[in-house]
Write a protein that binds this DNA or RNA. Sequence first.
DNA 1: AATGAATGAGAGTTCATTCAT
DNA 2: GATGAATGAACTCTCATTCAT
Lengths: 214, 214, 214, 214
Amino acid sequence: MPTSTWFRLNVAQRERVVNAAMREFGTHGFSTGSLSSIALEAEIPESVLLRYFNDKQELFAYVCDDVCRRVREEMERRVGGLDFDQPFEDWLVDVFCEWSEFIADHPLERGMTAAGTHELDTGVRGLVRETTNQHYLQIIEPMLQLWRDAGKIRADADSQVLTTLALMLFQHVALAPYYDGIDSVLGLYGQSVEEQRPVIRQLVAGLGPLFSVG
Amino acid sequence: MPTSTWFRLNVAQRERVVNAAMREFGTHGFSTGSLSSIALEAEIPESVLLRYFNDKQELFAYVCDDVCRRVREEMERRVGGLDFDQPFEDWLVDVFCEWSEFIADHPLERGMTAAGTHELDTGVRGLVRETTNQHYLQIIEPMLQLWRDAGKIRADADSQVLTTLALMLFQHVALAPYYDGIDSVLGLYGQSVEEQRPVIRQLVAGLGPLFSVG
Amino acid sequence: MPTSTWFRLNVAQRERVVNAAMREFGTHGFSTGSLSSIALEAEIPESVLLRYFNDKQELFAYVCDDVCRRVREEMERRVGGLDFDQPFEDWLVDVFCEWSEFIADHPLERGMTAAGTHELDTGVRGLVRETTNQHYLQIIEPMLQLWRDAGKIRADADSQVLTTLALMLFQHVALAPYYDGIDSVLGLYGQSVEEQRPVIRQLVAGLGPLFSVG
Amino acid sequence: MPTSTWFRLNVAQRERVVNAAMREFGTHGFSTGSLSSIALEAEIPESVLLRYFNDKQELFAYVCDDVCRRVREEMERRVGGLDFDQPFEDWLVDVFCEWSEFIADHPLERGMTAAGTHELDTGVRGLVRETTNQHYLQIIEPMLQLWRDAGKIRADADSQVLTTLALMLFQHVALAPYYDGIDSVLGLYGQSVEEQRPVIRQLVAGLGPLFSVG
DNA sequence: AATGAATGAGAGTTCATTCAT
DNA sequence: GATGAATGAACTCTCATTCAT
């Protein structure tokens, strides 16, 4: 947990620090990311940064958590605004498009998503990935349940498999356009939000048999 | 590319170096992995290590490539030995089981798979992931084509989507049992090869509608 | 000298601070002991601690002095309670036993004794050791004089030498049981109060010729 | 143990490092002594210093040991040169005078003696004091045995007590003249070698009854 | 008077790489 | 070609103290 000093800090300063940390960790990951770079960009002395957070891990964990929370809130808002009367398949396309747009508009959050996902150090990853996944799951699972209850998903679909796939695809759609070497098949790398749209449609259509009724 | 000295080296020495590097990079990743640890374990001076490879990146890239090649060869051998007369779904289960077993038996290769997949640094990842994926693709794609030609995969299935999914699942099955926080749904983490089997069957069955004919 | 604020403080708070400081300095010595640890344990902000004492040295000196004073009072009380009619040698054994017991029961005071004795920094040690020694001397010297006047110590004994020896032995008996490497000959390290008794008797007996009459 | 690099180093360089370390540790002790100061004085980069010794403790332990060894050799030489035909008391005075002279001429060694003796940290002190004492003991004990066998020490003297006293006195004579607050009785502080002589004589004479025959 | 915040200096240690032999 | 040595830059983290409120 951050120190009490951190929580008493004014919002602007907090934001400067969090942004700097997102940028650094998002670019270089936890172990290679450097506290001094963060402090430099936040325009505070390194020692001050370490009065806000007891150590590097604590800062990383805090920023991860913060990002997750904000991502989740925003995505819940966006998904909540979608049209529930359309067919499931179209709705799913909309969800992924919202996600793709959000990620495009939020490079820092995207970076942290990558950093959390890619951390190798067990201790650090432990702090992060489980939480992240839980956040995503708490969006995905209730949604699927809703559609299933409405009879718009085939009754014999395996929920766990669907959820697992969804988690994978969210990560894929978030990262593949920005990190090369991830998607060698659909060619997402380097594509704009608009260009991603048909690929998303292709993906969802391809997965259609998994859920489409009748 | 490694120096000419490297290629003139006797096999045993080369193996010692590659093994040490796999262990180190596989455990700590590229940026956190240390050349001195590798040199120490390979029982050569650090300076000698850097006569074999011009710098850290080169060593990493070489080892990644080497691992990929060996993994591919071994997997081609194993998949080639499977029964082609059984239903596609059963065959697919067999493939993933072979993969799961191979990964379990080769911790060093598994570590490098993780290291390659998780590297954040663009420069380094570029060297690695594309190659890795190409290796996998060259196993997966011809196989799928074969089954499709044999009429055992529904004609309207989207090959690209299937391939993308396959790539994702191979990574998932390889890493989720060994790194926590990756699979929060199926609970693969910590499972033995035997315990993974039913989960693999569940996954393939869940994906059944994607390819099953009729 | 502590600030005026310090002296206006309520007793409980003062005690908390002194105890925390004793524990910290007694464990780590002056230069390695940390003000923030002391403040933490005393449950006051570091800045408040430095309103009580102008700097670290001042706090250390104060605590040393405080400890000395209390040690001296207690030892005077204890020694005053001993039987003056027994032979000098027996009385001396009693004195060292009381001391050994007191030290065993007061780990904080023991720690500070060690810290004062072992400080290397000239500036700091100067503040401390002279005072400490004076306290001890003011117990030892009058006692020896008393016994000498009573004719129970040989007339030709060199008082200065006896006193010097006494000082050394008090320190030895206080520290050797708790810090290894101090006593390699008698094996005091790790001994309980009861186990120390025979060693003390051995020491006093061995020194017997120095003072025993006739 | 120092690294192999250290042992292959030329003598001059080694001496520069050891001297710098003696000066620093001897002045400030282990925990307060700084590697960068040592490196600075030895005119090598700090990183080079840490290629000779794996860490601070190792350097400290090495220097302590080195000092002990040299001190012991020199003292064995000096004591061996003394006249064995004089009375024990005179011989003892000579020994302490040699010691006092040696310490006066070797400020660096004196400092390290103090540093070893005064280290509070258990881990570090463990490395040092026991060894130091053993070195001293291996000079003192055989000597006492020799004199006792020659019948020049009273048969009923307690050897252990004599040895313990000797160890204390060697330390006292070594440090009291240079660190104030140690000797408040005999006034050794600040005295030259010549001025120390009569005090030594007084000490030995005062202890006379402990060993003098008849 | 109390106290939270800020801070520069410095600590020990690791590292990839270069250089000289 | 093999290798020991050197090295500067960077790292995280701690500390006693000062300042502003």
